[in-house]
């Protein structure tokens, strides 16, 4: 699947591993179940490790293991299922996870803006041709009310900083 990262379509170096098969070489993403089962061998192999979580699997379940992962993929089984927005924030804010947080599944153009604000920095999309559209969607709003995880200053801060500066 095409991957949007850093405002462009990029080559995806990661391979998703099945739960039973021999692991391919290189950077692999495994399910939580496989991680639970094969922790030791996964830790000792060469190549980076990623984890994909279903929307009913909170990152809290792997809170102690996060250092092992360079990527966490969070699944949106349907665009309406917004749990992963909270998971992404939890990963960044509570667990200070600095690797890639990737949105996978039913990812809509009109959600990109919110995802970005919650700490996602990579997005698997169906069709590379829509990139331009997506980038526009992500820039539809220049002001935001809430502090979050993107670089945007919240209106709350802007209001009171500009005021202070003017005083």
């Amino acid at each position: 699947m095409p991957l949007i990262k850093g405002d462009q379509i990029t080559e995806d170096p990661w391979v998703y591993a099945d739960d039973e098969d021999e692991l391919p070489s290189g950077d692999v993403v495994v399910h939580l179940e496989r991680w639970e089962k094969d922790k030791d061998s996964l830790r000792s192999r060469n190549g980076k490790l990623g984890l994909i979580l279903r929307s009913d699997q909170s990152p809290e379940l792997v809170a102690d293991d996060l250092a092992a992962f360079d990527l966490i993929a969070l699944d949106f089984p349907a665009f309406k299922d917004g749990r992963a927005f909270s998971y992404a924030r939890m990963l960044r804010e509570r667990f200070a996870f600095e690797g890639e947080i990737r949105a996978v599944g039913d990812v809509h153009r009109d959600q990109l803006f919110f995802m970005h604000r919650c700490g996602f920095d990579a997005f698997e999309v169906e069709n590379a041709a829509v990139l331009q559209d997506w980038l526009e969607a992500a820039r539809e709003f220049t002001s935001v009310y809430q502090p979050a995880l993107d670089a945007k200053q919240s209106v709350l801060r802007l209001r009171h900083h500009t005021k202070k500066a003017a005083e």
Binding site: F79, C118, Q146
Partner: peptide
């Protein structure tokens, strides 16, 4: 009202 407007995390409850 302002806090909840386009809240990035709570728009798909």
């Amino acid at each position: 009202r302002q806090w909840s407007t386009f809240h990035p995390e709570f728009s798909f409850l």
